[in-house]
Design a binder for these strands. Sequence first.
DNA 1: TTTGGTTTTCGACACAGTGTTGAGAATGAT
DNA 2: ATCATTCTCAACACTGTGTCGAAAACCAAA
Lengths: 211, 211
Amino acid sequence: MPAIGSRRAPTKGDQREQALLDAARVVLREKSIGQVTIDELAGAAGIARSGFYFYFESKQALLAALCDKAIGQTDVDMGDWLASDGLDRAALREGLMLSLKRWKVEGRWLREFFLAPDPGPEVLEMRDRLVTNGCTMFRNRIERDARAGRTVHGSPALLATMAIHLRLTTFADAFANPNAYAEDELVDTLTDAILRLVYGITPTVPRPELP
Amino acid sequence: MPAIGSRRAPTKGDQREQALLDAARVVLREKSIGQVTIDELAGAAGIARSGFYFYFESKQALLAALCDKAIGQTDVDMGDWLASDGLDRAALREGLMLSLKRWKVEGRWLREFFLAPDPGPEVLEMRDRLVTNGCTMFRNRIERDARAGRTVHGSPALLATMAIHLRLTTFADAFANPNAYAEDELVDTLTDAILRLVYGITPTVPRPELP
DNA sequence: TTTGGTTTTCGACACAGTGTTGAGAATGAT
DNA sequence: ATCATTCTCAACACTGTGTCGAAAACCAAA
């Protein structure tokens, strides 16, 4: 295992670890983490089952490693909006749309990572870190707006949690029923929902007709 | 197993089945369904592990039976609001408060039932039925309001799903962090959040007093 | 190219939990 | 008291997890 920031060439082991992650990303697109066996995961990366344990403590640990990277990406997706202030519907919408696209591909295991009922300790720790981090960024933005005099309808911490969860479940739902709603309608509704939720405001921007 | 509506006295088997459900309700307050073994569940009801299978196909099936009843209760909780129309903040708040109290007790397995990543077929079917049912009731109310001329900010189906999920995750969160927020603050915020989400309106009524 | 320490691989083992079966015991209606 | 039905459980077969240590592969220094 290379130290973080190590500059040495990737050893055979480093490649194998990557192969395991790549293989998992593919396999987990079809099956849930509970349905996949370690044997299958190892096999997909071309090693024996017992070899798996050289790289990861468990299936869960691999899942955590997978999500760590993906969530970083989601944070980047939302970066513009988080950095802006006021309503900035366009930035929010853009961020949500990017995230949605990511979720449509990697939704299954993102969902499992966040919603799994009994994660191992490592997963639990990382999950807490990621969720807390996400909520905090949201919350900071809300508090910033509140300080700037904008009306905010509740405790920023609670609102941030709600907004994060609203996004999470809406995406999870979009993944589960990919054809239930048009992407644009979904993102538009979610964007406005978050804005209404937090700021109590529905933008007057003209939108495609509503029922 | 007695036919539905059967009037005959409960046999020993009926009692055993009930004992199993009761025992599970207690055991599952402390551990997740994944952490509990069938052996433990059976033992808590005073029978051998293999005897368990006479009553339920699997752990999941028992969980489903447990939730079927609990969800019926939640629907009753929300009944007043679902039957009313217009904003009726008081009824909504009351329903949410009742549900919250239920979640604080039975949250762990309710959460697992709804959020479990790979439910067996029976669970899946029942879950779909219950979720769909819940969403439909919510949705009907929204559509009723829309027809009555009240502004509604998106497709009723989507809004209903969002509202249901918002409630679900907020309660799940409240269960996971029981001391993070005061009950009243949480319910007030959630009540208003749902009203803003669906109708884009924040009641101007002073809180927590109601008109 | 040999050497020797480090990294990687994997067969074999121990174990925990699930689900099935069939023989027998308990139950309760007649 | 009889006897079909309902209930119980020990024993078995199976799947998947995690550990261990011996062997193989790797790679840098001599």
